[in-house]
Design a protein around this nucleic acid. Structure first.
Lengths: 130, 130
DNA sequence: TGTTGACCTTCCAGTTGCTGGAAGGTCCAT
DNA sequence: ATGGACCTTCCAGCAACTGGAAGGTCAACA
């Protein structure tokens, strides 16, 4: 498929997809006309990138995560180590998002709007894992 | 406290803290010597920024989130609207992280390393919410 | 009291990760 | 065969830092 369709399916702008190729994250085929030709697996990777970037992983971290996906042999131990480190990071992010959710919900529904300038939950804003 | 201590307590580099001041996210006092002077509430905000940036929110989104925290009057309806939008985004991020966790865990423990080049979970990598 | 070293200041330049726009080639439907 | 929607490369600009130079401040210690 052409870049336009890959863009639509992955949720990434064509510009970004070309950029990811520039920095070596994906390698689409080329048609005889010079157009990039994306396979289904490329779209998977692009969606994966779209997500993990949106979740606060750096491009280099995404490269590592993609390598986990691509390294089907799973030969090296450090690849596994990276995966386990990432698992911990993901858990932390989930915890932090959950806490942020509590804080925000509190902000919207409970505390504010009426009074209480020094609600303890808001004072402790994002402190719990400090 | 000085910027060094604020940095240590918030987890943000001093450089970034100054940058956040430049773009109007925080406004520390100044001592007679010209040094920035951070209060506890500033550190709360910095930690909050450190987290929400790390979770994939843009600086402008963080500005909105901070506004929710600061706008103790909670007068405007659109502030509440913003908060509710952010709650939905947070829920989506939590879902995506959970899915990413499953995928990664699968990668480490189950599928790979032995055989199965086309494990269905990996083929569906980050597709579930497409 | 001087001076050393760790801190702070501003400013300017460089990096990362895109993003927009120009200039031009391709494809296909009328 | 031509118009519009696609694609290409290239170059410039923006967002969000990040590093380094040049210099001021402060606390301690000889």
């Amino acid at each position: 498929m052409n870049i336009g369709e890959a863009s639509e399916r992955s949720g990434l702008p064509s510009k970004t997809i070309r950029y990811y190729e520039d920095i070596g994250l994906i390698r689409p085929d080329r048609g005889g006309n010079g157009y990039r030709d994306y396979a289904a697996v490329d779209v998977h990777k692009l969606r994966f990138l779209q997500r993990s970037r949106g979740l606060g992983f750096s491009v280099e971290e995404c490269r590592q995560l993609l390598a986990l996906y691509e390294d089907k042999s799973r030969a090296s131990a450090d690849v596994k180590g990276i995966a386990e480190t990432k698992l911990l990071e993901i858990d932390r992010k989930i915890r932090e998002l959950t806490e942020l959710r509590h804080t925000l919900e509190h902000l919207v529904h409970a505390c504010h709007g009426n009074d209480r300038p020094d609600c303890p939950i808001l004072e402790g804003l994002s402190d719990s894992a400090a």
